[in-house]
Design a protein around this nucleic acid. Structure first.
Length: 846
RNA sequence: GCCGAAGUGGCGGAAGUGGCAGACGCGGCGGACUUAAACUCCGCUGCCCGCAAGGGCGUCAGGGUUCGAAUCCCUGCUUCGGCACCA
């Protein structure tokens, strides 16, 4: 990189980022520029959070894309006088560590810690101002201890519970986490076998308790698409619960209650059969002996089929009749009861009234099994008994109920309400709301996670581990290899334990927690990472929350971002914190893909290593290029071809700052006529840039921010070596340029700033401690405008005018113009449209 | 199938609320510097016709609203993301 002796004499020194950047990073660390005094209440706080990374081993360009613009925002806010808290940590539990452990015979902790060390080093290369003093590593007992503590509080509050649930299960490797099931045909990640469903005792958190509150986004500024995704995921449906009862026959006394949930009580007269989920509790009791073999075979098959097979919309409906009948409460009609796997046991009541005329799924089922289809709602122009080629589902204005006894003729919505009211009098129906959201299954049969702190005692049942015994440490020496069950189960020293209540022999719970538990409250822990009296120091949380700006990927829309909202509400309800929403403003940046447009991954070999780019161009160029690539929320394929342009831009910034009087070979010998006017133009441009750039930073529009800095720099380049260079106007423009650049390209800005300060004989002060400048409103206001002139909407001419002319004056000037007259063909315009002094459109007809 | 986002030069992209389409950058072409190259700098660069002045056409396609549409409305196509028998 060293310049040979042939360099132009006027060149003082080349811009060499690799020489500059480490020096400033060391200096910032010395100065504690990154450290936040969390007790400083003299300035307004700003909590800026970026999603903490999983320590996979290497920082790749995707991490830079996510983190460096956020750092720019942190620096921008600091320059506005905020006390900015910008922490970082590691999401250190999870499956990849266990994979690596098995593949390379290295302990998950060792693997994880080595990766964290490497990632810390790489993260520092970014020149980002993370507050490392607040770092949190979730696999640290000091952290997961509080996972356990929180779990126990939730358990006490009834927010955690244990029940049997169907989990993914591999015939060779046992229970799998959801993410261990691969591909659309759902195979085990380790052995490739088909994954089945199996009922197991599992721990859950009661997310459904907060369903309605989670639907409420008032008071938080989140992107609409995320709010929609969460809303759909929660899936609130309003309708009614209706109670059918089983009919007596030669086998059954009848009278068993069959509850169904429906959003269409108006179609109750159209219910021609009922369908229960194969797992429904009454299936066994209701099955007619003659049907038993077939029913049992069907239930068994439904249990082993993969979820995808079962839920596929493409698949033809299957099901079997139980040989029993139910009584429709509205008309006493006897209808057959079936079981079919298209009815899900986990939604509603696990049973439906089937109305084939008005539900596509029921329609398909009825067609296949020859069950009756009876129309009970008709559009205005449709006959009461018009045949149906497909289910009539849509609502139409003027539709009415038909074939519905005394409700016939009523509009559907009114009739539905009336039916529910009528049945409610006998306790056979009530309005009901159902959600798609399920409780959160947090049990994982894995080693590398937080042990769930309970003990199973044959006498006392489930006994929580006393707070004083926390943390339940993950044993370090367990044999985590091998296949099948959770390795913790084989560790007798871990499992065998005395019951805290009765002192008898008992077994420790071996399930560990889903790692989304760890990430559901980590930002609270950042505020007091070593606090010993609880998971959080309440005073710090009260002062610093909510997070003012959270940035991270949209892929977490219905996982991490929903769990975090749930956790905050649950923590508030057990009295740990006061806030009910964690993140005030959310921004979802996009994802950098490989050059092939695919997700970056080592196995695809399309991963861009930022270290190489940093070695070649410096961190500032890489940061700036990532911001310049496109809108931050968009992401896109990685394509490094433009990076040289950004590097050249920084070189020009270097040049205009240090060599204002230089002229490069090939520069035109520009002579500036009016130095005062040119200087004024420079000042105006600088202040307008400042205004626009400030707004872009605020709105996280980094790509246009960089473009505007480039424009200002190009203007400076034009006047370099002329009489304007070095003037007070020039100087101000350069000063503003450096300040605006500082958050995004912090090293070069700091370097050039220090040289300016030294040249002026002033004491050094970091540019990052400077106040963000204010623009001069008088300079920003336009003095003259270039007015585009349209004729019939087509651009025909432009004219430079002083600002603030009246419409009459503008019209007079415009109409006098030769090109305008030519375009009008000598005629007078029929109409003249003025657009706020910004454009004129002359309209002629004919 | 349902929900959401998006389609603009050779490429990445720019145009808060309808008002100069293509800012900025890449790439390309030409030039300056150099013995030469690299580096750097300057100019041109949506497409078509024209020596030029100038004109025509242009924001996925087709309609519409408007003095005026990349932007609003309708229909369709394509790509990406989410959900996927949720009664």
């Amino acid at each position: 990189m060293t310049e040979s002796g042939t360099a132009d004499r006027t060149r003082i020194e080349r811009y060499e980022p690799t020489a500059i950047e480490p020096r400033w990073q060391a200096r910032w660390a010395e100065l504690g520029l990154h450290r936040t005094n969390l007790h400083d209440a003299s300035r307004p706080k700003f909590y800026l959070l970026t999603m903490y990374p999983y320590p996979s081993g290497d920082i790749h360009i995707g991490h830079w894309y996510v983190k460096t613009p956020t750092d720019a925002l942190a620096r921008f806010r600091r320059m506005h006088g905020y006390n900015v808290f910008f922490p970082i940590g590691f999401d250190a539990f999870g499956l990849p560590a266990e994979n690596a452990a098995i593949a390379r015979d290295i302990h998950p902790r060792e693997w994880t810690m080595a990766n964290i060390d490497n990632m810390r080093r790489q993260l520092r290369l970014m020149g980002a101002t993370f507050d490392w003093d607040s770092e949190v590593v979730t696999s640290d007992p000091d952290y997961y201890r509080w996972n356990q503590w929180l779990f126990l509080r939730f358990l006490e509050a009834g927010l955690a519970y244990r029940t049997t649930a169907a989990v993914d299960w591999c015939p060779n490797d046992g229970t799998l986490a959801r993410e261990q099931v691969e591909g659309t045909d759902r195979r085990c990640w380790r052995c490739g076998a088909r994954v089945e469903k199996r009922d197991l005792e599992q721990w859950f958190l009661r997310t459904t308790k907060y369903a309605d509150e989670l639907l409420d986004f008032s008071g938080i500024d989140w992107p609409e698409p995320i709010r929609i995704m969460q809303t759909n995921w929660i899936g609130r449906s309003e309708g009614a619960e209706i109670i059918f009862s089983t009919a007596p026959d030669e086998q059954q006394a009848g009278g068993d209650e069959l509850r169904v949930f429906t959003t269409r009580p108006d179609t109750l007269f159209g219910a021609t059969f009922m369908v229960l989920a194969p797992e429904h509790a009454l299936v066994e009791k209701l099955t007619h002996p003659a049907r038993r073999a077939e029913v049992e075979a069907y239930v068994a098959r439904a249990g082993t089929e993969t979820e995808i097979e079962r839920l596929s919309t493409e698949r033809e409906k299957t099901g079997v009749a139980l040989g029993a009948e139910a009584i429709n409460p509205v008309n006493g009609e006897r209808i057959p009861i079936w079981i079919a796997d298209y009815v899900l046991s986990g939604y509603g009541t696990g049973a439906i009234m089937a109305v084939p005329a008005h539900d596509e799924r029921d329609f398909a089922f009825a067609r296949k099994f020859g069950l009756p289809i009876r129309r009970v709602v008709a559009a205005p122009d449709t006959a009461d008994d018009a045949a149906l080629e497909s289910a009539y589902v849509a609502h139409a204005a003027g539709e009415r109920m038909v074939n519905s006894g005394r409700f016939t003729g009523l509009p559907a919505d009114e009739g539905g309400r009336a039916i529910v009211e009528t049945l409610a009098a006998d306790g056979r129906a009530k309005p009901a709301v159902t959600y798609r959201l399920r409780d959160w299954l947090i049990s994982r049969q894995r080693y590398w996670g937080t042990p769930i702190p309970v003990i199973h005692c044959d006498v006392c049942g489930i006994v929580p581990v006393p707070d004083a015994d926390l943390p339940v440490l993950l044993p370090e020496t367990v044999d985590y290899r091998g296949s099948g069950e959770n390795p913790l189960q084989r560790d007798r020293a871990f499992v065998d334990v005395a019951c805290p209540r009765c002192g008898g022999a008992a077994r420790r719970e071996t399930d560990t927690m889903d790692t989304f538990m760890d990430s559901s409250w980590y930002w609270y822990r950042y505020l007091s990472p070593h606090f010993d009296g609880g998971p959080v120091d309440r005073a710090m949380v009260d002062r610093w929350n909510p997070v003012d700006q959270y940035t991270g990927g949209a892929e977490h829309a219905v996982m991490h971002l929903l769990y975090s909202r749930f956790f905050t509400k649950a923590m508030a309800d057990v009295g740990i914190i006061g806030e009910r929403e964690p993140f005030k403003r959310l921004f979802n940046q996009g994802q950098v893909l490989g050059i092939d447009g695919e997700r970056m991954s080592k196995s695809r070999g399309n991963v861009q290593d930022p270290d190489e780019l940093v070695a070649r161009y410096g961190a500032d160029t890489v940061r700036l290029f990532l911001m310049f690539m496109g809108p931050w929320d968009q992401g896109g394929p990685w394509n490094p071809t433009g990076i040289g342009g950004v590097h050249r831009f920084l070189n020009r910034v270097w040049t205009v700052t240090l060599e204002p009087h230089g002229r490069a070979a090939g520069d035109p010998a520009e002579v500036v006529g009016d130095v005062g006017a040119a200087g004024r133009e420079l000042r105006i441009a600088a202040h307008r840039t400042l205004q626009a750039v400030s707004a872009d930073y605020e709105g996280l529009r980094f790509n246009t921010m960089v473009a505007k800095l480039m424009e200002l720099t190009n203007l400076l380049m034009r006047y370099r070596g002329t009489a304007v260079a070095g003037s007070a106007d020039w100087d101000e423009a350069v000063r503003l340029l450096l300040l605006m650049l500082a958050p995004s390209a912090p090293h070069i800005a700091e370097e050039l700033w220090s040289r300016r300060v030294a040249a002026a004989g002033e004491p050094w002060r970091s540019i990052h401690a400077e106040r963000w400048p204010e623009w001069d409103a008088a300079l920003v206001a336009a003095r003259t405008v270039e007015l585009p002139i349209q004729v019939n909407g087509k651009l025909r001419d432009k004219v430079e005018l002083p600002a603030g002319l009246s419409q009459d004056e503008i019209e007079r000037i415009v109409l006098a113009r030769e090109k305008v007259q030519a375009a009008l063909g000598g005629k007078a315009p029929d109409k003249v449209i003025h657009v706020g002094g910004r454009l004129v459109n002359l309209v002629i007809r004919g």
